[in-house]
Amino acid sequence: MNAFTIEKKNIHFLFDQFRKDYKIYGPTKPGYESTFEEITSIDQLHLDYHSTVLPPKKIFHPPHEQLFTFLKEKETYTTKEIFLEEKTLLFGIHPCDVHALLKLDKFFSGEFTDIYYLKRRKNTCIVALNCVEPSKYSFCYSLGTGPFLEEGYDILLTDIGTEYLIEIGSDEGKKLLEKTTVEKVTDADFHEKERRQKLTELKFKKHMNTQWLPQIVSESLNHSVWSDLGERGGIAGSHACLSCGSCSLVCPTCYCYDVYDTVDITLQKGIRARELDSCQLLEYAEVAMHGNFRSDRTARIRHWMLCKFGAAAGGHNSGCVGCGRCIRVCPSKIDITQVARILRGE
């Protein structure tokens, strides 16, 4: 059996079961102001959230992270790596964010691997939640990353009225449910899911046509939209870019980070650490002797958009998933879907 149902009021059955093996992270507030935090009691969990400030990447690729410590003794260094390998479970993560994690998984593997990200990710269980009330900023439907999920979950929940439909996506998920009191599923439950999916797909306020978009943007490096955003008054409905970096920091597929050392006051021991960085910041592309390969705001906002449209070096793996966080967070109201429309000449 790969599907069950559970009454909404009994959702704590799942929670209690998960807590036995995992540290649980979930959305902590309703609406838009939610954040993913550690949840220790079911009352803290708000599955009625629209979106969070930071995406779940904060758990796997945190804003600050220590890579290793070093200690200098008699001119030789000893180093000690810092790994966090706690078993974590994400409860109630939306399809767009699951797709973003799948992209980051690919990004951080390959020829060179990022051991810090992958070690954490390996120990994670994903309990996803399909979106039936998409945020007014999101456009995942245009990108095929939502509102309902097809892959990447251990357990998938869908709100089908007074119950959640539970679908199993992995052995891990199956094991977790074996010991939980869940009810049998009927064909009607699946029909209800399907009905709700179709209904939800009609609710989107924002859309982005992605056909040929990477090619279009690669050919539009001198388009006036970039200087409108970077230096002039913005595009219709927006102000000029502030270069505040918010868009990239809240983006679930933005991966860029800075690496730096700090030493304690003895100057003999310290930490090599990394910190989320943003291509929107002036210092990002700075090199020795005050060279800077992206000193113009115009070049910086263009690079970010290029990256989200899949035309930068991260390719598809750092491309947009349509979560809408950058639109909501931008003080200048810059809307990536509108930029895409302008580039398409629509």
Binding site: Y255, R274, Y284, A285, F293, H303, L306, C307, A312, G315
Partner: peptide
């Protein structure tokens, strides 16, 4: 991985 050296794609 860190992204800083990107030039176009």
């Amino acid at each position: 991985k860190c992204g800083h050296c990107q030039i176009g794609p």
